[in-house]
Design a protein around this nucleic acid. Structure first.
Lengths: 142, 142
DNA sequence: TTGACTTCGTTGCAAATGCAACAATCATGG
DNA sequence: CCATGATTGTTGCATTTGCAACGAAGTCAA
């Protein structure tokens, strides 16, 4: 039996790559806006959809609802988002960007674009299949 | 200005994919051996190299040294690894598998192989470029 | 309407985490 | 030899995390 090789183990390599990329990008927006990863994700979600409930972010952003809830609380106390109870279904809390939050995203979006471009250049010809792989994994039932 | 699309943001997609894969695999070895992700990583490293210091694992496994240190402490108290001071350089702590640890890895390695095969099948023709992408990211200076 | 059940978001709590500080050890230059 | 600085691993501490429990709100059927 050949010994197990962690170096060639896909979940491991994927985790390491993701952590590296995440940390690198986090350094940039942390320096620019002083927010954490969960906060960034919530802001980013809100920037592409005006009113989103905690539940929806949980489902789409791969975050525990308590994580979303706490990130939202911090963002609210920083004045970047607003939380309001949905009148139609009072269990739902609708999150939306304040003008300050919108301004922060306006500064962050170019950073994100630039970082993405770096990554794309790095991947070169492998970019398309790489993205396809990510899509497959995101959809797969594991 | 086109709105920022989190769905198409590579770091985000990579993080989500990695987290999904990690959680899925963790469920399996957790059920089989009752260990955590950091503990699995340490064990796996030790199974491919007999004696490894905390420092080496830190460097290669993308883990904080305190994380490695604590995972090693737990594994030692479970009787899966042994810690001994390196006589040549007494700052170094050499970690190695006990027979019990080796037995656990013997049960876990086939699980890992099976999981890897699933992933490879999932990725299909995209596998090679996908792995190439991971390698590029792992090497890149971000 | 009532009562049982579900869904949503928050919170308590124990565990995990990252970072800085630290002691122990080693290396290096004088 | 000594003194200074670097390296290694552990620990203290504040923060973050995941999970379960919970209250509030909604649904549905009888």
């Amino acid at each position: 039996m050949t010994a197990f090789q962690l170096d060639e183990f896909l979940p491991y390599r994927l985790a390491v790559a993701a952590a590296r990329v995440s940390r690198a990008f986090e350094r940039r927006y942390r320096a620019e806006a002083g927010i954490s990863v969960p906060e960034w994700r919530v802001l980013a979600h809100l920037s592409q959809q005006d009113e989103v409930s905690v539940r929806e972010i949980e489902a789409r952003a791969d975050m525990e609802k308590s994580k979303v809830s706490r990130a939202a609380a911090r963002l609210e106390s920083q004045g970047l988002i607003r939380k309001q109870v949905n009148p139609g279904d009072r269990r739902l809390v609708m999150l939306s960007l304040t003008p300050e939050g919108r301004a922060v995203m306006a500064r962050l979006a170019p950073l994100a674009q630039a970082f993405q471009s770096e990554l794309q250049a790095l991947l070169g010809a492998d970019l398309q299949p790489f993205e396809a792989g990510l899509a497959v994994i995101a959809r797969a039932k594991l």
